[in-house]
């Protein structure tokens, strides 16, 4: 690999392979997260005051964070398992960086649960977990166990990551300062994760057009779960149906770009 060096060069003049090698690399990941995680313990400024929330708001946030932990655990299990099955070294390296990201997300969400007075996060996650998210995790792990790489990447990096990217972004705009800062850092990671999935599958579908039908079937199976997860997330955050933004738009756009609209 020829390292891309910046200097005065135009980024967009890089060769395609040079760009792909760069953005899949561990070095790229390291230099990227340095920009928004250095000196930010548990994803927030060291000097930000932890707010005291109204009991009802705190309870909603606990439920939301429990479900975020559920989603991040699914992504952590998924990404770590997919490293083995990844068809290229670039994909393996990228997924290894995703494993680190997902572990960090899980850790910061659990830490925030502790700040909210949750002494036993595992029991709380079990008690408050959205059943649709539990089922989604089961579907994802089944695809991985079956060795169905494209379906698993679709479920994890397109569906789950786009869901998380959208919900976290929306929640960050409506959260207390600590939660907002924490979510903003997670959103920056999610851009890479969902982009990897869409681009990887887009390239695969360009050479395997028959794969489109397979992924459409996976999409149809997952769609009811996606709808239930979105709805549950908005309930947890506390938005009345009339005030809900079109959260599914990013998901629908990704599906359209991949040509998976049924």
């Amino acid at each position: 690999m020829t390292p891309a060096s910046a200097g005065d060069i135009e980024l967009h003049d890089l060769r395609d392979q040079q760009f792909l090698d760069e953005v899949h690399s561990f070095q790229f990941w390291f230099d990227s997260v340095e920009g928004y995680l250095t000196d930010r313990p548990y994803g927030r400024d060291a000097d930000v005051a932890v707010p005291v929330l109204e009991p009802e708001l705190a309870d909603r946030l606990v439920t939301t964070l429990c479900n975020y932990c559920l989603g991040e655990t699914a992504a952590l299990d998924g990404a770590s398992s997919l490293v083995h099955d990844a068809p290229t070294r670039n994909a393996k390296i990228f997924l290894a960086t995703q494993v680190a990201d997902e572990a960090r997300h899980l850790e910061v969400f659990r830490y925030r649960l502790g700040e909210l007075g949750i002494a036993d996060p595992e029991a709380e996650i079990e008690r408050r977990g959205n059943q649709a998210l539990v089922e989604f995790r089961g579907e994802l792990l089944d695809m991985i166990a079956a060795g169905d790489w494209p379906a698993a990447v679709f479920a994890q990096n397109v569906v789950l990551e786009t869901l998380e990217y959208t919900v976290f972004r929306f929640h960050a705009d409506n959260a207390d300062e600590v939660t907002r800062q924490m979510l903003r850092g997670v959103v920056a990671d999610e851009r890479r994760h969902s982009g990897f999935g869409e681009n990887h599958l887009g390239r695969w579908l360009a050479t395997e057009p028959s794969g489109r039908q397979r992924l459409q079937a996976v999409r149809q199976r997952l769609d009811p779960l996606v709808a239930a997860i979105f709805s549950g997330a908005l309930d947890d955050i506390g938005f009345a149906p009339a005030d809900r933004p079109p959260l599914a738009r990013d998901y629908v756009e990704a599906i359209d770009r991949l040509g998976l609209t049924a």
């Binding site: 890089l14 760009f19 760069e22 851009r191 890479r192 969902s194 982009g195 990897f196």
Partner: peptide
């Protein structure tokens, strides 16, 4: 440079061409 139709651009944050 000023962009025009046909130019290639890269999005590093989401790894897209």
């Amino acid at each position: 440079r000023e962009l025009r139709p046909g130019d290639k651009v890269y999005c590093m944050p989401c790894m897209s061409r």
